[in-house]
Design a protein around this nucleic acid. Structure first.
Lengths: 244, 244
DNA sequence: GATAAATGCGCCATTTTATGTCCTATTTGA
DNA sequence: TCAAATAGGACATAAAATGGCGCATTTATC
């Protein structure tokens, strides 16, 4: 918690945790010299840290020393709200995509993330998650003409999706024809590696599905929309609706 | 940091952060009453917290109050070393897989994670990352006979890969024949959604590639192996070597 | 077995910090 | 103009942190 702090002890406790984390073996003597305090003080610090739940082991006797259980946190990371949301969604997508390598520990990361949200934010994130659908992996044929959409488009779309804001896009369909549309991005569908926006098209006042990599440009508007249930987009989903 | 702490102030500072995060608007008076300390003490706490970098805003005047910038972290998460490694690898894989949705904020999460590692651990993680290869997405044909490997196998394989330990597996090849092997898991290749182990097969003393979902069982051994360069597995990679 | 190096912790005097009280200045909405 | 809010200076006092000492205990090494 303490960073550049006027509070000496807080600063020292913070540094101690970092040192114990990084150096394999410290002795109380070393630490005392390093911090310019007495050994007694360091032992008291260590006691306090133990009381706080840090798994600090100590080996007595010659050659002994103090260690922080290596299983303990490499460090705290502070996530802003959008960072936490993106991370949570990404983990959910990764878990859903059913490619199980390296996912063993991700469950507990996800649980920690969820726990760190306040109840109403948790609810919002849950709703956001329910708006992302994971389908089958795209056929090899569909993939061949895949181009990465420009990151500006992705960012705008992402923002509009999260904020439930109407979006003005230029879209190139399969035939190559370009049209301009106003869409409400209700759901996102991933048929890996292709993302689709399942949207309400203002022009036709009907549901339409857009391939994200065919969106040429996107601008957000100020108008917000009310979410429609998945049922209203049934014909766009065609059995792809493995929702996360 | 402070939990059930003998240090009153630490506890209070921690609680203050939580309160400011959750409640939209607090006044110094409220907080003072809630914590049973004087208003002066609360203002001093807030000063300290600001010095520590917390973005605390305050509105003066009637109807004013104290707020924690809502952009600020929803909470700190403590990751254990394996959790952090898995998360970092997963983010790297996700970024490499080139499915750009929800990846906007993930870069900064990754940077924070990397920064929280000590230099030597950072190096280890980098090396681990370089042992994971991302190839093309599997053809629709190959995907049809995909079954999720049992999680015990995945966990054992994962551990052996990270620890560079030899692995005893039972493997079923494309024809259905089952064999028992001792392998050194040097590299992992993802042709989404299928993971391959690129390994040295002790039986033949030659490189072999195994589909993870065809590994029937896996047991780790105690013997560790020295990593061989990618070049030694060239014939197994066949142009798939888009390494992360 | 002796010794040195290490942790663990109790006790007490001393120093430092945190807190409360009182004060003034400033901003802001009603 | 007033009341409610933050901001922060000054000072006395209560509380906590620190250092130094001693003693018990554990453990590797000679």
């Amino acid at each position: 918690m303490a960073r550049t702090n006027s509070n000496d002890r807080l600063k020292r406790l913070e540094l101690l945790a970092v040192q114990l984390k990084q150096d394999e073996l410290c002795t109380v003597k070393n630490l005392a010299q390093h911090h310019g305090v007495s050994e007694r003080t360091i032992t008291r610090d260590l006691l306090l840290m133990r009381e706080q739940g840090l798994p600090i082991d100590a080996d007595r006797g010659r050659g002994g020393g103090v260690r922080l259980d290596r299983n303990w946190g490499v460090g705290r990371i502070n996530l802003t709200y959008p960072e936490a949301v993106d991370l949570l969604i990404s983990i959910a997508v990764a878990e859903q995509m059913n490619s199980p390598m390296f996912l063993a520990s991700l469950g507990s990361v996800r649980r920690q993330l969820v726990a760190s949200f306040s109840p109403d934010k948790r609810h919002k994130v849950e709703r956001l998650k329910s708006r992302i659908l994971i389908g089958v992996t795209a056929s090899t044929y569909v993939q061949t003409n895949l181009a990465a959409p420009p990151s500006r488009v992705v960012q705008t779309l992402h923002q509009a999706f999260v904020d439930q804001r109407t979006l003005a896009i230029r879209y190139q369909n399969e035939g190559g024809a370009i049209s301009e549309r106003q869409i409400e991005p209700h759901y996102l569908l991933l048929n890996y590696p292709i993302w689709y926006v399942i949207a309400l098209d203002h022009l036709r006042d009907a549901p339409r599905t857009f391939r994200c990599d065919r969106i040429l440009s996107a601008d957000r508007t100020e108008t917000r929309f009310r979410l429609l249930p998945k049922e209203d987009f049934k014909q766009s989903l065609q059995g792809n609706d493995a929702l996360i």
